[in-house]
Design a binder for these strands. Sequence first.
DNA 1: AATGAATGAGCCTTCATTCAT
DNA 2: GATGAATGAAGGCTCATTCAT
Lengths: 194, 194, 194, 194
Amino acid sequence: MRQLREKDTSKYNKIIDEVGKIILTEGISSVSMSKIAKATGISSSTIYVYFTDKDDVLKKVYLENKKNLADYLAKQIDSTITDDLQYIRSYMEAVYAFGQENFEALMIIDQFNHSPILMQLNISVVESYAGFEMLFERVDRAPAGIFKAVEPIILLTFGYTPIVMYLQAIKLEQIDPKSTTINQIIDMSIKAIT
Amino acid sequence: MRQLREKDTSKYNKIIDEVGKIILTEGISSVSMSKIAKATGISSSTIYVYFTDKDDVLKKVYLENKKNLADYLAKQIDSTITDDLQYIRSYMEAVYAFGQENFEALMIIDQFNHSPILMQLNISVVESYAGFEMLFERVDRAPAGIFKAVEPIILLTFGYTPIVMYLQAIKLEQIDPKSTTINQIIDMSIKAIT
Amino acid sequence: MRQLREKDTSKYNKIIDEVGKIILTEGISSVSMSKIAKATGISSSTIYVYFTDKDDVLKKVYLENKKNLADYLAKQIDSTITDDLQYIRSYMEAVYAFGQENFEALMIIDQFNHSPILMQLNISVVESYAGFEMLFERVDRAPAGIFKAVEPIILLTFGYTPIVMYLQAIKLEQIDPKSTTINQIIDMSIKAIT
Amino acid sequence: MRQLREKDTSKYNKIIDEVGKIILTEGISSVSMSKIAKATGISSSTIYVYFTDKDDVLKKVYLENKKNLADYLAKQIDSTITDDLQYIRSYMEAVYAFGQENFEALMIIDQFNHSPILMQLNISVVESYAGFEMLFERVDRAPAGIFKAVEPIILLTFGYTPIVMYLQAIKLEQIDPKSTTINQIIDMSIKAIT
DNA sequence: AATGAATGAGCCTTCATTCAT
DNA sequence: GATGAATGAAGGCTCATTCAT
């Protein structure tokens, strides 16, 4: 329903976008229907035309941003790569590339992932892993001996989280991307997993 | 002022503890003065005898839990270890041990670390790094060639976050600690860093 | 927007009126949003549909009552009178007449004028002198020799305040309007000024 | 118990003074026990040692300031003056002199006089007229023909209020005391009354 | 005499949501 | 489809006052 970087005209997209901005500047818990109304210029009662309630708004914001990430990864990653290691490397590079273009989306996803609100939002496991299915499958099918652990969560721990933390650290200027490059980070991650 | 696992008698400690429980079950943003009052049996106005305002309550909850972690690490880790690698390994083991005994404290800290609330609580950098200073110094002073990166944030990314995520995964039964042991995780982390 | 003595139907007017009553019986400082809610039968949150906050309520109450006075004076006083003394006399008579019909409004205005609350309500000088501009101009333009002092505040001291105090004294039965008539008061005032 | 301009040492006087300051800067309604505690450095529970409750504090503040005025007038005015007009004139001068030295006291009294709080404080008529008894008696006993009206309230209207308003206008720089002198004001008042 | 601790009641304001239009 | 109006519930916080020490 919503394309990345497309100019949104519909009220639905306007709401999704503005809530994202509020989350980034004030946090998920600061989101209120009246704030959304003010930020979008849409009456707060009108929001209920597009969403059933506040939780639905938050849930959709989370899922739309995850979908953006998943779509990006699907488009970016060459699934014909046969070398498993190379595949994983290109996965991490894709996450990094996405984060450079859509840092906000990554931060929004991150905030949800670490918030207990996520649990109240009734999000299925399938939805929460959207965009990573292929990675998990690939690692799962790989011949024994290559990967140390194949549990999805471990893969995320060493293959996804470091990329996100690296992007954050650069943004906060805790790290200089020239002295500590993304390739170094990816190398470290690869070494950990294999 | 507050000892780990000691039975709290004072109202101050009672409040700190109950707020921690609320955070774990409902999230930081769900903490309200009236909820604290109900959970502790203390009148909400009395809370203001011990804390200046709600932010002060949250800040103290964060710092007390961090202090518990810092104290535990300081006590647990043998600072006479000369082997840098061995030192880091014992650091990670200590974090894991703490998490086994005080899983809640670790989760509370984690929730704060990923919440934008943290920024508005006016917590100094020194306070936020409490418990990790020695680790950072050690790595910083280590002879060149041993560690790939010495930035604190990288150390946390590969040396602290995986332990926390591992503990979480076990709790959520996403991982079986018998098939994927803590030692495996630590090995992976060590390989990444060195 | 609001007409004198008209039967109010809108919630806005209902609030303005009831707050006026509360002020008269309990004082400005006793006005609370919940008291307004109870007195009007309007939910306290609904008050915020019509007013931005409590200060806005008080400010509007003051200005509406001043407007009533100003409108009354403008309508009552014959501005074609050429004799300056006669003009002032008719001014005082008009204030007295207003006070007889709208004693409450005069008392509300008086309470605001003597309250430090007035200062924090951000009321412009123009607004605070509403209804008296013509009087001030008239005296200012009068040929020298007629009036002793032309400062607005002096005019109010001897031309407005005595009327208000007289009306109050009658209400409190400190004075018998038959033995001490309004004309006597006006005569005294006129003698003072000229 | 309390002398004018004497340096207060006792807690009672300290409280009376600080409450006066709060009233002048924030208004009577802003006075709170905790504010008094903070301003005086005295615990709020200790205030109850010297006063029965908050109303008692306010009442005493009012009466102490009125007493100061009454004492000053009694001391300043030469009761041996036989000329009634001259006596009244010296009365007004005394009020003016008091206002110059104790402007704050006059303003505190004025704020109470125009506040409905005064009615709740159970202040007897005798107390409220303290300091003016002699004036009233004098005018009452004066031979017919000299004064137009002898009601106390009229005397205050033309003989006391103008002085207070004049002092206020000077303070607010609405009037230049050199171009409009106190003698002019007194002359105007005298002309009104006689 | 003096006060730290405690609290129920109340303060102003914002909340998510509903509903008639 | 869109919204202005309305509200009960809850938010954080301050209040005057009491009481044990």
